[in-house]
């Protein structure tokens, strides 16, 4: 190839995707763009994508700095291996995208920030469903007869990608919707051909500018919450706003872009697309909004209504705890300080 929009005479622009602390759903979502994956292959040279091809970390380390044009980084920073990869790919990449909710804001793994490392390990390596008679816990180093084995070191506080390295773009969602991924890939390809311009750095891409309500077809009235109901406990009017029916639907505070899939299917929005543009703390925003429409001025009655909401922290901060202003519970923070 003689002319390449990337200015790289030796081949196509390079693409990488990396999987840190996450479930793998983001990887599946990328593959779920169907035949558009061929466009990726046609326009990019995939140099690193552990879930799809064989490549070693040392291969990446050997690449020149800034040689990867586009890296989609999914998953949050749970251990020092994740952090190492974040720094490495930051150095090697021109455009680093925090891809998916874990990388953007911590997502479900981030809820572990309410617990200490000890509590997390106890949940994982002890308990009734675990057969671990010797009470073995992960160690970062283990002396075996053949030599010392190393395992990634577990961090007391899970971090988002931009809490360890600067990030160029954020692509929210758990996982990001495939049609949005397709659109972003199209945009990057067009930008590489000089046919489009990328949004300013720091922007959220592959999502809308409003909230889920914007895409939700349910009818809305003035809100007044007199009780909270779980979806299985209430007779839900399929045409009416879920929040008005007492189901804590996070759509009011969640960025649009998913086409309101969950509320359309009768399930409450859980907030995976993260905060709306300009919102600093998703959970705090959502809580203030919901608190504003609790329909009572009597403290006892207000308490009764709030008590009907199980696990408020998990409900309001399900995806955003690690990315929130507080980031973690006090005990986890204290341990993190000791580590630092």
């Amino acid at each position: 190839m003689t002319s390449n929009p990337d200015g790289n005479p030796n081949g196509k622009p390079k693409f990488a995707m990396c999987w840190a602390a996450s479930c793998g759903g983001c990887e599946i979502a990328v593959l779920n763009i169907h035949e558009k994956i061929l466009d990726v292959d046609q326009n990019f040279e995939v140099v690193f994508w552990p879930v799809a091809m064989d490549a070693k970390y040392k291969d990446v380390e050997a690449m020149p700095d800034g040689s990867i044009t586009l890296t989609l980084f999914n998953g949050s920073i749970r251990n020092d291996e994740n952090e190492h990869m974040a720094h490495l790919l930051r150095r090697k990449s021109k455009i680093l995208v925090a891809f998916g909710s874990c990388a953007c804001e911590g997502c479900i793994p981030g809820l572990a920030n309410f617990s200490t490392t000890q509590e997390i390990f106890d949940a994982a390596y002890a308990g009734i469903s675990t057969d671990n008679p010797n009470g073995i816990r992960p160690q970062s180093a283990w002396d075996a007869p053949e030599g010392t084995l190393h395992l990634p070191k577990f961090y007391p506080v899970l971090k988002t990608l931009d809490q360890v390295v600067p990030v160029d773009y954020y692509m929210p969602g758990c996982p990001p919707e495939s049609h949005q991924i397709g659109a972003v890939i199209d945009l990057v390809i067009q930008a590489l051909h000089g046919e489009a311009t990328l949004p300013p750095p720091g922007a959220v891409i592959g999502a809308g500018q409003s909230t889920v309500c914007d895409e939700c077809p349910r009818a809305r009235n003035v809100k007044k919450i007199t009780h909270f109901a779980r979806i299985q406990d209430a007779l839900i009017d399929p045409a009416l706003c879920l929040l008005e029916q007492g189901v804590l639907c996070n759509g009011i505070a969640t960025r649009s872009g998913c086409t309101a899939l969950c509320p359309k299917a009768g399930a409450a929005c859980v907030g995976c697309y993260g905060p709306a543009e300009g919102v600093l703390d998703y959970g705090a925003r959502l809580m203030t909004a919901v608190a504003s429409v609790i329909d009572s001025t009597d403290p006892a009655e207000i308490n009764r209504i709030l008590d009907s909401l199980p696990d408020p922290a998990g409900a309001f901060y399900r995806f955003n705890l690690a990315g929130s202003l507080l980031r973690a519970g006090k005990a986890a923070w204290a341990a993190d300080r000791v580590k630092a």
């Binding site: 409003s210 009235n221 909004a289």
Partner: peptide, 13 residues
């Protein structure tokens, strides 16, 4: 108006 999705949280406040 671009950001407002008409969720109506504020309407009665």
């Amino acid at each position: 108006a671009d950001k407002c999705s008409g969720c109506r949280i504020c309407n009665d406040l």
